[in-house]
Amino acid sequence: MTSRAHLPRKRLGLVVLTIAGTLTALVTSAGAAAPSTPSAASPTVAPLAAPAEPEKMLVIGDSYSSYYGDRHSRYPGWWAMVAFQLGLEPQLDAMGGTGFLSRSSSCEHTRFKSRLDTVRAVAPRILVVEGGRNDWRRCTKDGRVVEATRTEIERAAEGFFDELAEVWDELGRTPDDVLVLTPWGTTKERKGRIIRPIVREAAQRHGFSWVETRPLTLEQAPDGVHPNNDGSRLLSEQVLQSSSLADRFPRA
Rank of each mutant, 00 (worst) to 15 (best):
R200K: 14
D162W: 00
P183N: 08
S114R: 12
S104D: 15
V199C: 07
A49T: 15
S105R: 12
V211G: 01
V15R: 13
T140L: 04
G96Q: 06
L88G: 03
S106P: 00
Y67M: 14
T217H: 08
L240R: 09
G77T: 03
A94C: 09
P51I: 10
K141L: 05
L116F: 04
S104E: 14
H206P: 09
L235M: 10
I153R: 05
M95R: 09
F84A: 15
A30L: 12
V167E: 06
I194E: 15
F249W: 05
H6V: 15
P38A: 09
R138I: 05
E154Y: 04
R74V: 08
T18D: 06
P90V: 10
V59C: 13
S209K: 11
C107W: 04
I153Y: 02
V129F: 03
E189Y: 08
P250K: 10
T44L: 12
T186V: 11
V119C: 09
V225N: 07
H206M: 05
S102D: 04
S66K: 12
W78G: 08
A32S: 12
E152S: 04
F208P: 08
E152P: 06
G192Y: 03
L48M: 12
G31Q: 14
R248K: 13
G61Q: 11
A157Y: 01
G172E: 05
A148G: 07
L218F: 05
N228I: 07
Y67E: 12
P76Q: 06
T149R: 15
G143W: 10
G143F: 09
V45L: 11
M57H: 06
L235A: 02
V167C: 02
E163N: 08
S244V: 02
T217Q: 11
P222Q: 13
L48T: 14
R233G: 06
P51C: 08
A50I: 10
D230C: 00
T140R: 03
E170P: 01
T151W: 01
S65P: 00
D247M: 06
L245E: 04
L218W: 04
S104Y: 11
L164Q: 07
Q85H: 12
Q241E: 14
L240H: 07
L86T: 06
H6W: 15
N229Y: 02
S232P: 01
L127C: 04
R133T: 11
G61T: 09
T37H: 11
V178Y: 00
L58G: 07
A80E: 05
I126P: 02
E130W: 01
G99K: 02
L216D: 00
A83K: 03
N229H: 09
Y64T: 12
I19V: 15
L181F: 10
A32M: 15
